[in-house]
Nucleic acid binder design. Structure first.
Length: 103
DNA sequence: CCGTTGACCAGGC
DNA sequence: GGCCTGGCCAACG
């Protein structure tokens, strides 16, 4: 628990994201007490396992998916989220209603 | 130690 | 509503 490394804290938060819900990088960064959302991005790209750390549940603040998803690309990420019940908008973005509001 | 890079975000056009 | 720019800040070599 209380990891001193930023990466470990980020991983812990991402792992706590329930199925069918998504979080923005800024949200994760804030909960992980990280200075900037960029660190979250670094951690995700260094993410060792998609099953251990569901980085596909982490999206942009606009609801856009991750450009250059480390496990196949945006296309794969979108299918995974849809499979988990996440709603997508016509413009190809995640519905803001799928964002976690209370944690 | 310093410079570059980057899975961000907010603002402007 | 979509695309571009600037700024913040940590990790990497």
């Amino acid at each position: 628990m209380n990891q001193n490394n930023s990466f470990d804290r980020i991983y812990a938060i991402v792992q706590k994201i329930p199925t069918g819900k998504v979080m923005t990088y800024g949200q994760v960064a804030r909960l992980a007490n990280v200075a900037t959302p960029r660190v979250v991005g670094f951690a995700m790209h260094s993410n060792p396992d998609s099953s251990l750390t569901p980085c596909h549940r982490v999206v942009f603040a606009d609801g856009s998916l991750t450009p250059g998803y480390a496990f196949g690309g945006e296309n794969v990420q979108r299918e995974k989220l849809e499979k988990e019940g996440v709603k997508f908008l016509k413009n190809g973005k995640v519905s803001t209603n799928s964002f976690i509001q209370t944690f």
